[in-house]
Computed example of a mutant assay.
Amino acid sequence: MKIVAGLGSVDEYIPYVQAGADELFCGYVPYNWTKKYGTVLPLNRREVLAYNVQLGSFSELEILSAMIRKYRKPVHIAMNSLYYIPEQYEEIADIVKQCMKIGFDSFILADPALILYLRQKGISCKIHLSGEAGEMNREAIKVFREMGIGRIIFHRKNTVASMRQMIEAVNAEKLEFEAFALNELCQFTGAFCNSLHCDEMGYLCRTTYWGDAEMEERMERVRKRTLEIEEQQEQQYLCGKSGCALCALPHLEAAGITHLKLVGRGNYVEDMIRDIRNLKAALGVLEENQREEKETGRYIDQLNKKIFDGQPCGNNCIYNPGQFL
């Protein structure tokens, strides 16, 4: 399985590659788009200018393209909005063609209409279906495959078992499959979230809410744990503190996952470097265990020693351990 890490600025590319990232992804929102549409009609659903979340100028893309030619680690450009107004489709197609001219040929898209529009325009870029696209099942994957999708990115709410069933059902299609591995566990599914990630307001995903008693109790535990983690954040690094699936790696690989998503756009660079190294180390432990035919329990023991140094993990599991099988 390959590591796909989030990129917040051009400066992060080389250290992330050197740390062990196999691929990277980033957002690109031209200033003209921001000036024209502002926050409420976003290109990428990450309309943040206050800190490094995405690239904002074509010159940055040109610099990044030169780095890619040297280091040979591809960067996928994310356009995660669920829909666009009619006039925006032509503008996005122009942005895609500009990016392709300087070497970017793969794009992470969530809007099925945009995918169809690009194909109808004869734009032959590689397309990864964003996890923001929503619920997945085997028939949906078949439909998207017919639209020329090369990779399916599963959203956080898929269980490992359901991903395995879907992959097995379309295995002959030779698709790539990507799943979340570290960071940014969220109570929402992106496709059903109308929140905005921007400078002007707080993120809805960080707002407490009420549901049934069981859900409320669970969210209160998560909220308290999050507060504890945030209080320690400046003093202590903890791998997977905002979402972790390291113990699920054997099951993800067995399910047919080919790529692991390491979220991190906007995170501290030093923390991201450690995240990449830890995920790389976890994959090394997994490979060693498989080569020596050791049990999964042995993998967990070695993981705790190598990654968490015998300390308890953040207990913020992306996938419920009880749903692995």
Rank of each mutant, 00 (worst) to 15 (best):
K2Y: 04
Y13I: 10
Y16V: 03
A19E: 14
D22F: 02
F25W: 05
Y31H: 08
W33S: 04
W33F: 09
T34I: 12
K36P: 12
V40T: 15
L41N: 15
L43Y: 05
L43V: 07
R46Q: 14
V48H: 09
Y51H: 12
S65Y: 08
M67H: 11
R69N: 14
R69Q: 14
P74K: 05
H76N: 14
H76W: 08
Y89D: 08
E90T: 04
D94A: 10
I95G: 04
K97Y: 07
K101Q: 13
D105Y: 09
L109E: 07
A110N: 13
L118T: 13
R119F: 09
Q120W: 12
I123R: 08
C125H: 12
E139Y: 11
K142Q: 15
G148I: 03
I153K: 08
F154S: 03
F154V: 03
R156Q: 09
V160G: 01
M166I: 01
I167W: 02
V170T: 13
N171P: 04
A179P: 15
A181Y: 02
G190A: 10
S195T: 07
H197C: 15
Y209V: 10
G211N: 10
A213I: 06
E216R: 05
R221E: 09
V222G: 00
L227A: 04
I229D: 06
Q235S: 13
Q235A: 12
Q235G: 08
Y237F: 01
C239T: 12
G240T: 03
S242D: 11
L252Y: 00
G256H: 02
T258P: 14
T258W: 05
L260V: 05
K261I: 00
G266H: 01
G266F: 01
V269C: 13
V269L: 15
V269E: 15
M272E: 14
I273P: 10
R274W: 08
R274D: 14
L279N: 06
A281V: 07
A281I: 07
L283C: 13
V285W: 02
L286W: 05
L286K: 04
E293S: 11
K294S: 07
K294A: 04
T296E: 12
T296A: 05
I300T: 10
L303R: 00
K306V: 15
F308V: 02
G310Y: 08
N315T: 02
N315R: 06
I318K: 08
P321S: 05
G322M: 03
Q323N: 11
Q323F: 03
